[in-house]
């Protein structure tokens, strides 16, 4: 207890420089620990970063990154002036948030449920099965969605009609696109998403449970007051990381589910860039849009991290 207090005070800026140096020296091995990672990021990420300048250039591969002519903010203007700019932004944000709202809590609930089960076989089976969809390729995934939702013979449509309801036009009705996209994503990734929380749950102190049982706490209460707080740091960090990815909606699956009827709900930034680049490898344009995405993402990440730091003890920095 005493020791931990002293290390807490060590973080105060009041401390003298000399003791900071002492601390660095005492922990020199930690810098060694960082070294491989730092080198890696330096070589494979920072070194190529000069490539970002092509967002402000007209990149011609044979002229190289530095040799291509500058065009200033042309590519950004083209993107911002696009007829679809606001639609794209809205669709990207709404799909992302929708996905986060449904897809984020489910793995946590599932992991907590797994944790309650002691029977080895059942637990193992369900875990392995729910984790399997992660490996299904996007092409097959989209193919299955289209097959299951086909108005003429789709399994799900048949089921809805057998129950006496009128099945909506899932594939072509813009109102259904986001739901279709998000739910199929949830189906594919929830099981996989539990893994990280299961690992975090292994850190739960059994003694806390024993004590709580003696106090007569119900199972549900113990989950709520012991298990959940244990994994809260992980949840917080995952949430922050996810927020930092909010504008990053992959194009592949959307493209495969997109058609001209649901376009108004399904067109996102990445599909737009994909189409623009398709004609003639427009590296510069896609880099510019990517840069725009990154800036927004960074702003969101910093904001969420700031909130997290204010309200909890967990944050990225």
């Amino acid at each position: 207890m005493k020791a931990s207090k002293s290390s807490a005070t060590a973080e105060l800026p009041l401390l003298k420089k000399s003791s900071k140096r002492a601390k660095i020296l005492a922990n020199w091995e930690l810098y060694l620990f960082m070294l491989p990672a730092l080198l890696y990021f330096l070589i494979f990420h920072y070194f190529p970063m000069y490539g970002i300048q092509i967002a402000f250039k007209n990149f011609v591969p044979s002229m190289g990154v530095t040799g291509s002519p500058w065009v200033g903010f042309d590519h950004f203007e083209r993107f911002f002036n696009s007829y679809y700019f606001w639609d794209l932004l809205w669709n990207t944000f709404s799909i992302s948030f929708y996905e986060l709202a449904i897809g984020f809590p489910l793995p946590i609930i599932l992991a907590l449920a797994f944790n309650e089960i002691t029977s080895g076989k059942f637990k193992k089976t369900v875990q392995t099965v729910t984790y399997a969809p992660h490996f299904i390729s996007v092409v097959v995934m989209a193919g299955m969605i289209i097959t299951f939702l086909s108005p003429s013979n789709g399994m799900i449509v048949m089921l809805i009609e057998a129950l006496g309801f009128n099945a909506p036009q899932f594939l072509t009705d813009p109102a259904w696109f986001k739901t279709m996209y998000v739910l199929s994503g949830v189906w594919q990734s929830t099981g996989w998403g539990t893994i990280i929380y299961l690992a975090a749950l292994s850190g739960v102190d059994p003694q806390l449970h024993e004590a709580a049982i003696v106090d007569g706490a119900s199972r549900f209460k113990r989950v709520l007051h012991i298990n959940l707080p244990t994994i809260l740091p992980t949840i917080t960090i995952m949430l922050i990381l996810n927020m930092g990815n909010i504008l990053t909606v992959g194009y592949e699956k959307i493209l495969l589910l997109q058609n001209s009827l649901n376009l108004e709900a399904s067109d996102v930034i990445s599909t737009y860039v994909y189409r623009a680049g398709l004609v003639d490898a427009q590296y510069s344009f896609s880099t510019a849009v990517g840069l725009f995405n990154s800036v927004i993402n960074v702003i969101l990440l910093v904001t969420v991290n700031w909130i997290a730091r204010r309200t909890s003890s967990n944050s990225l920095w």
Binding site: A37, L38, F41, F44, H45, Y46, F47, P48, M49, Y50, G51, I52, I54, F59, P61, V65, G244, Y283, T287, G290, L291, S294, N297, V298, L301, L316, W317
Partner: peptide
């Protein structure tokens, strides 16, 4: 230093 690389990348050609 590390987090920045999550957002900014030089792209395919420089890499």
């Amino acid at each position: 230093f590390i987090l920045l690389t999550m957002f900014f990348s030089g792209g395919l050609v420089p890499t």
